[in-house]
Write a protein that binds this DNA or RNA. Sequence first.
RNA 1: GCGGGGGUGCCCGAGCCUGGUCAAAGGGGUCGGGCUCAGGACCCGAUGGCGUAGGCCUGCGUGGGUUCAAAUCCCACCCCCCGCACCA
Length: 976
Amino acid sequence: MFAWWCFVEKNDFLAWLRSIEVKWQEKWREARAFEPRVEPDKPKYFITVPYPYTNAPLHIGHGRTYTIGDIVARYKRLRGYNVLFPMAFHITGTPIIAISERIARGEEKIINRYKGYVSVYVKDPVEVEKIIESFKDPLKLATFFAERVHLDFDALGYSIDWRRKFHTGEPVYNAFVTWQFLRLKEKGLITQGDHIVTYCLLHKQPEGEDDIQDADVNPVEILEFTAIKFKLVDEENTYLVAATLRPETLFGATNLWVNPEADYVLVKWRGEKIIISKEALVKLQHQHPDDEFKVLKEFKGRELLGKKCISPLGRELYVLPAKFVDPDNATGVVYSEPSDAPYDYAALMELKRNPEQLREYGLDPSIVKDIEPIKIIEVPGVEGHHAAVVVEQMGITSQYDPRLVEATKTAYREQYYRGKMIVDDPEFKGLSVSEAKEKIKKKLISMNMAFIFYELNRKAFCRAGGKIIAAKIKGQWYIDYSVPWWKEKTREYVEKELKIIPVKYKKAMLDAIDWLEKRPCARKRGLGTRLPFDPEWIIESLSDSTIYMAFYTIIHIIRKNNIKAEQLKPEVFDYVFHGKGDPKKISAETKIPVEVLEEMRKEFTYWYPVDQRHTGIAHISNHLSFFVFHHVALFPPEHWPRMISLNEMVIREGVKMSKSKGNVILLRDIAEKYSADLFRLYAAGAANLDTILDWREKEVEMVIDNLRKFKVLAEKALRAECKETCGERFIDKWFMSRFNKIIEEATNALDNMEIRDYVQNAFYQVLSIIDHYRERTSPEEALCMVKRILDKWIKLLNPVIPHLTEEIWSWMNGEGFLSLNEWPVAKKEEINEEVEALENMVERLVDDIKNVLNVLSPKPTKAVIIVASPWKYEVVKLVEQGKSIKEIIQSIRDKHGLKGREKEIIDTIQQYKKAPLKEALKVNPTNEYNVLVEAKNYIEKKTGLEITIMWEEEARTQKVPRAEKAHPLKPGIYLH
RNA sequence: GCGGGGGUGCCCGAGCCUGGUCAAAGGGGUCGGGCUCAGGACCCGAUGGCGUAGGCCUGCGUGGGUUCAAAUCCCACCCCCCGCACCA
């Protein structure tokens, strides 16, 4: 019953939190609190987080990133910066279109998924149906989710300037991207060429992951086979083409395999006749779209059996049957290398065991007798033929055994990384397998004995069932990130100037920049902007999102003045971003008033560059690299981005969130079931930026309790009746010292993007010093202390829990929005190292007493605490000054009349050297005595002993044992 | 493979860059206590081992090394995670 009651109480609190969150969000919106104007005298801070792709609701993983962005925005605002934190929506690319088409096609699975997504926001099922229906228009789908995500962001309290929102399908945005691509082209950064892609035979167009069945879970890769030509002995200019991923094994080829039941073709191509499978021909044609292929003959594989071929190395090989050969994989012909390839070994052995099989095909069984594996690769630790070893170890006897896949994997891996070629050919002898592979491939191709054949790593079909193959498309447009001046400039900037947090990702960023080469930047499908110089193509989604932060600075002006896309000619952007051209002339051409042009220019030059871009680590090798690259290409150095900050992803209860697992927590759930401040506090405080955040319900519950504790504390503190002259005891000073230090630490943490540290300090540490203070004093006094610091405390917490602190600020009758107030400054004069040292001493003392109490029996009931004689403090100081033992003894003895007690001086020195309590240097002995007197009740409470406090000299005269064990900041204790 | 990150106490997780004050923060869990309530709120304590005086021993993936001193620096090994492209 109580459990139930508590549960309700917790939910009530959350409901209350949500209610004040909505209230403050409305107030901020009404007051346009986060819509900054250009204020030339005020320092600006321009922070951006990448706009979301709006094909589905966002989840807490996204929320983590945006929340961190907002915390920084709010912090900088409190620090007196004019902060611009804008947001827009990304709809460019194929996924939205793909979804739209699948809905239109009536695909049950996707419709249900989207019904689920829509019902997150729309409760009425009839309405949901209507909306799903509207999704047949991709733009409707995109804008639906864009609008919802906007609401979700508001519900999390993000301090976004929404006047500047747009989506990437808008004509005005297209005009901006058009400008960008024209200028990139002029700079020679855009090239055209051939490209191998996944291609759909049904739709006769390239189709990527979004269009291929299960490609999201089981990715489709394009593999590069080496297709090697084996000349048929009895035929003129005719080759059997065997494809392999391991051309170096050609040295050990013993025969060729074809599938007797499969269809093969004899094709005239490039003046030669080649034999490949029927399926392979289609692929080859698509990989050489300009070539002519003439099919001379079609026949079954069995017709090839028993024929002899000559390998490029000159060896004569028989063509033999093997049913494991898949005609729909590469050329449908393979050569056999039974020494290293488990499949080949298994098939060969099977054939040797059942030579009658050969008779079926009219072959003489004796031909297999002579075929033996040829060892060409030596792998340390492997005796004999590697394939034989593996196959026999696993007890595989048939070429159909599925374990051969695994066997192949292990054998190949070992060969590839550890294997050495032991062939006779001096050119290859001794090479590692990986070296030999590349070398022979090149050689064979240059000899015209081989060509590259592209094949997929698995069978793949488009969502409509069309077969996917690897094909070459011509005239693909690229952005060429390998252009030397561009790469060098970008690299240098990133290396020397760009700040990257956490720093450990700088290397990753530099590597990505080095590694980037040509990247296809347009496709024939999808939403987005057309390439201005080749409008058949649509600019691909990552390429149109590299410098759009510049667009934030002017979009609201474009809207305010109702400027149309047609007016946004490239010259407009040249002027706004570069000050190039004559505004009057541009105005005349575009009908955009000169003042508006100038306003845009002013806005851009005020806000640019981007001071900070914050996003997920996953973006380093693509978006973030492009972001820097494009700025370097299109803007002068003073407008290049200043800082990139990154955070890791979010998982839930130790496992990745995914649609299929159904364990995704959406941002909408935060707004409806949890609370914005709760999420913010948790997301920011539970893990460092570079650590994966594990959302654990149990811990979230704890955070709820802590938030509630905070709220109750504030409430009670404000109601508390306190004397103005709140005490100046040691413990009060201690509290203020700690609190001021926390302000300093929290500030430092935020300045260094150590968000978790900030939360730990500003929230948890403060709660913990309040607890300690309460224990040392009383609940009432603790409340008064909270009252004293409350306004600073809520300011400190405002960036992370803006709603609750805003609410408390209103209870305090604070003026204006707390969110627009000032960041608290630590009072240096209240930081008191001596007092902190003394409090540490008290804590240590309590620990020590308990420790001793632990060992003693029978249990004592009283304790004497003995404060070291003041001369011992002097000893400590002299030791620190580096005085010799002799000197110290002399001066202390003379000064304090300790003749005959030199041994004690030495003990003191030794004790200090053994365990130097440097804090003792900051402490006045009288204060040590006094603080103990002040803490007497506390110590009694903690230890359950009756406490007496004495100076060492007094204890000595009273013959209290162990009195001489008192040392500075380590009082002697005697329990009895 | 190439490139990057990481392995810490029952669990999660800080610390490691800038060696000592680290048996190692903070959570969680467990056990015990308090709160005029047989409370999954809150507060306090215990939670590697040993110990009749505040101490000792073991310990931060494994094995070596540097050092007066190593979770922290160096080397080797084992294991885990991520990216490798045209996909947002």
